[in-house]
């Protein structure tokens, strides 16, 4: 049963919300294979706001894609909300993406020929939520992210900040436990970026587990915990805790 209240509390879990062990992703290349993520291991407890930081090409977006089930790992284990996602079949993985995680992209990735309302409603439609409750839920979310009056507009008629707010609303429509955000402020000006971070912070305050990719230390400072990556490897965590034994120390 889905919960439609943005402020719904998540029951405290005794197991990590996200647990990664020996995660590796290798992309086959023309002359040599590219190892985007290499032997990464970490745990994230429920309700945390974490940031994955690192320079461009360090593998942080790929790591987020692996956690969200939109890329398959070459090896290793990923547990999200109690599900071992590398073991899921195509259909189960789709259900996982539909109900367990909400993805926010740097380029927004709204469907250009759907209205903002339909973009936000799409995951709910697919989950079979009845029309009345779904409409209420979508309009509440649009109200929350401050673009209720843009519901009937097409994406290209909105500013970047407004499009990203719509993307956040879409990520929340099925009330997932985990929000994954890939450079959510990367395409926004500082004011819009600030507002989006504020919104994400509020979501975290209400119990959502939030994992955000960014290369900007100022933005990463919003997070309670930072995972730093370089060349596909996890280096340290910024809250002072030691990285997993497998993670090398930053030189």
């Amino acid at each position: 049963m889905l919960k439609y209240d943005i402020g719904s509390e998540i029951e405290p879990l005794t197991v990590p919300m996200i647990a990664v062990r020996g995660l590796t992703k290798v992309f086959p290349g023309g002359t040599a294979d590219l190892s985007a993520v290499s032997e990464v291991s970490f745990d994230l407890e429920p309700g945390i706001f974490a940031a994955i930081t690192g320079p461009s090409g360090s593998g942080k977006s790929t790591l987020l894609h692996l956690l969200g089930g939109i890329e398959k790992p070459t090896s290793g284990e990923i547990h999200v909300a109690g599900k071992e996602i590398q073991a899921l079949g195509e259909s189960e993985l789709a259900t996982f993406r539909l109900t367990q995680v909400g993805f926010i992209f740097q380029a927004f990735h709204l469907i250009p020929n759907l209205t903002i309302f339909n973009n936000v409603a799409m995951p709910g439609l697919l989950a079979g939520v009845a029309s009345g409750p779904l409409r209420t839920r979508v309009m509440t979310l649009l109200e929350t992210v401050g673009i209720r009056d843009k519901a009937d507009r097409l994406p290209h008629e909105l500013s970047g900040g407004q499009q990203q707010r719509a993307a956040i609303a879409r990520a929340l429509v099925n009330d997932p436990q985990v929000i994954l955000a890939d450079e959510p402020t990367g395409n926004l000006d500082s004011a819009a970026g600030e507002a989006v971070l504020q919104l994400l912070g509020e979501l975290n305050d209400r119990g959502k587990t939030l994992l955000m990719v960014t290369h900007d230390p100022r933005i990463a400072s919003w997070a309670g915990r930072q995972l730093r990556m370089r060349d596909g490897r996890l280096l340290t965590t910024a809250d002072g805790g030691a990285a997993q034994a497998s993670a090398p120390q930053e030189p």
Binding site: E90, L93, T95, L98, N174
Partner: peptide
Amino acid sequence: ARTLGILRATGWSLRH
């Protein structure tokens, strides 16, 4: 491709 990628990233399976 990208629209279908968005759909799949937001929960659509290949079957869908």
